Structure formats: structure tokens, C-alpha cells
Simulated assay, not measured.
Amino acid sequence: METVLRPAAVIGGSLVVTLLAGWLLDLLLRRADARHPETPLWGLLRRCRLPFQVVLCTSLLRGSYRATRIFPHHAFVVGRILTLVLIASAAWLAVHIATAIVDSTYARYAAVARDDARLRRVRTQVTLIQRVVTAVVVVVAAAAMLLTFPPMRTVGASMLASAGVLGIVAGIAAQSSLGNLFAGLQIAFGDTVRIGDTVVVDKEWGTVEEITLTFLTVRTWDERRITMPVSYFTSKPYENWSRGGAQMTGTVFWHLDHSAPVDLMRDRLQEILKEVPEWDGRGSGLVVTDTTPHTVEVRALVTAKDADDLWTARCAVRERLISWLVTHHPYALPRVTTSEAATRPRSGTGSDFRLRPDGYAV
């Protein structure tokens, strides 16, 4: 009878204490969250209830499993398993606590921040800090779990003798990974590119969607994702349209006939821009920028608050002005001349040639 009651009492008592402690912790965090609505920290810490209960239950069982006298011949193995579970659950709890603190800090800052560019920079830094902390905790936990095995300690001691050679070899092998790691930290704290920035890389326009310690993801306008190592942004040139402010100036080009009514086009451009909500009103203009034997190049300038609105404004101006020319001034559109070429006049005083009605000499 004792062989049944003793294990049931130890295991059951550990579970009851764990459940009560988890309920009490959740109750205290809920009350703290209600008293301090200015910070989401206490509400975020409620996510730590499950890892906290696992840590507590494993600790209680680790300290009392010998009293249960279950599998006495395998007590060492059971103790080793509980130790490994305890280390893993403690790392799980540490990651949740660190994540709650980081998310709470960012949420409080975002609630009072007015500068969108600075907010995106802080978001990038916070995300990378969170990933670094998670990686460090996982590595430390894995090392601690390996060191619980005595053979691993012996191997570690023997490896220290050749640590210099192994360090050189590992450094050469992990050169690319380490380069990306330091590049990620440089991006986070150097403020060169941030989550939400509009960039042009390899002739692809998109928005930075995710930045990790090793790679960066750009979401293009057609919903594709371009993934590239973060070292690209520290070693090669790229365009960052959000740097120094999101406002942008764009151009729209037309190739028209030499008879195009440029003055009327300027007036029509202003009328069109007043009907385009994406135009921010900062500037506009229309000029002839180039000429060829057959056409003239006309350029319009439009401004917008960001790259997305600029693209929409440029498309609207291009489409509406072309429609206006087709409807009211079709002669301004480029055309191919198919009339006969003028003949070269014969030498003389000019009385030996005449002009045709269309103006060509014969």
C-alpha cells in the first residue's frame, strides 16, 4: 500500500502546488495589470504562467523523486531526465520574460513617439535585441544540458588544449555567418535601414518587412519576398527612399509632337493634381526636357508623402493627361511622316524650281 500512496502523495502534491502557484501568479499579474494600465508589462508576463509551472513542477519532482522509491534502480536516469527538463524549462521561462520586457518597452515608447522614422528604428533594434537574447539563452541552456553528462566534461577539458587551432578553423568556417551577425548588429544600431523602409535593391522596389541577425526580407510591390543576407546592406550601395523622411518627388515623361500645346498642358496638369488625393501639394511643374527630329520630351514633376502615394499620383497624371490630349489635342501625339521627301533644288538663281502646294520644292 505504501508503494502506491507514497508516489501518489509526492507526485500529486507537486502537481497541486504547481497549479496553485500558477493560479496565484496569474491572479497577482492580473491585478497588477489593472492597477498599471500605462504599461503592458504585467499583461505580457501572464504568458509566462505555463513555463513557470513547468519549472516549479520539475523542481519539486527533482528534489523529491527519490522519496517516491519509483524505479530505484533507475534513479540516476530519472534524475538526469528531470535535470534536463528543468534546464530547458528555465530557458523557456527566461525567453518569455525577456520577450515581455522588450515588448513592453517598445509598446510604451510607441505610445508616445511622434516620429515615424525613429519609431521604426527602435522597432528594428528591439527586434534584433530580442533575437540576440533568445539565441544566447538557447546556447547557454544547450551547453548546460551537455555539461550534465560527465563524458562531455572530459571532452571539453581535452578540447581546451587545442582551443587556439579550433578557434582559427571555426573562425574561417563561420566567416560568412559571423559577418552576417555583425552586419545585423551594425544595421540595428547604425540606423542604416529599418523595418518599414522603402528600398531599391538589385533594381527591385519594395518595403523592408523583416530583419534578423543573418538575413533581411524585402516585400516587393507585387507581394513577392526577396531574402538576402544583411551583409549586402553593409557592403553594397542601395537606395533607401525612407531615409531622411518619406516625402518624395517623382517624374512623368511623354514623347509628343513638336506642335504639342505645352502651356495648355501646364494648366491641365494643375487641374489634374487638384483631383488626385495622393498629391501633397508641395510642388509640381511641366517643362520640355529634350527634343528629337520627330518628337519632344515633356516632363512633369509631382510630389507625395511617400513612395506608394507617389506611384499612384504618377500613374494618374500620366493616364489623365494622355486622355486629355487624345480628346482635345490629337495632333500633339507623336506620328510618323509618310509624305515624299523634298528634292534638292538645282543650282541657280532660284527661278529654275517651284514649290508644290504642300510646301516641298520640285
Rank of each mutant, 00 (worst) to 15 (best):
262 V>L: 15
260 A>W: 01
270 Q>H: 11
184 G>S: 09
201 V>D: 07
307 A>T: 11
187 I>C: 03
246 A>P: 08
202 D>Y: 08
303 T>L: 08
280 D>S: 06
301 L>C: 01
282 R>Q: 09
272 I>M: 07
210 E>F: 12
191 D>S: 11
234 T>D: 03
228 M>V: 12
297 E>S: 14
222 D>G: 02
280 D>R: 00
246 A>L: 10
188 A>G: 09
290 D>Q: 04
304 A>C: 07
298 V>Q: 05
283 G>D: 14
218 V>A: 01
263 D>P: 00
249 T>L: 10
306 D>P: 01
270 Q>D: 15
258 H>K: 02
304 A>T: 01
288 V>A: 09
289 T>I: 14
203 K>E: 15
212 T>S: 15
246 A>N: 14
276 V>G: 04
286 L>W: 01
263 D>K: 13
216 L>A: 05
200 V>S: 15
185 L>D: 05
213 L>P: 02
279 W>K: 04
224 R>G: 07
212 T>P: 00
289 T>A: 06
230 V>M: 10
234 T>P: 01
260 A>C: 09
190 G>P: 03
212 T>F: 04
219 R>C: 02
290 D>W: 03
278 E>N: 07
258 H>F: 09
226 I>W: 04
228 M>L: 15
202 D>V: 04
292 T>I: 07
233 F>R: 02
221 W>N: 06
188 A>V: 12
230 V>P: 01
272 I>K: 02
209 E>L: 14
242 S>C: 09
291 T>Q: 12
252 V>N: 00
300 A>Y: 02
188 A>C: 09
187 I>G: 00
198 T>Y: 08
237 P>S: 13
212 T>E: 13
229 P>I: 08
304 A>Q: 06
236 K>V: 12
192 T>M: 08
184 G>C: 08
258 H>S: 04
273 L>T: 04
262 V>W: 10
213 L>A: 10
188 A>I: 10
245 G>W: 03
192 T>C: 02
294 H>E: 15
221 W>T: 11
194 R>V: 03
225 R>H: 13
228 M>I: 12
296 V>L: 06
252 V>G: 00
286 L>A: 05
205 W>E: 10
215 F>A: 14
307 A>K: 05
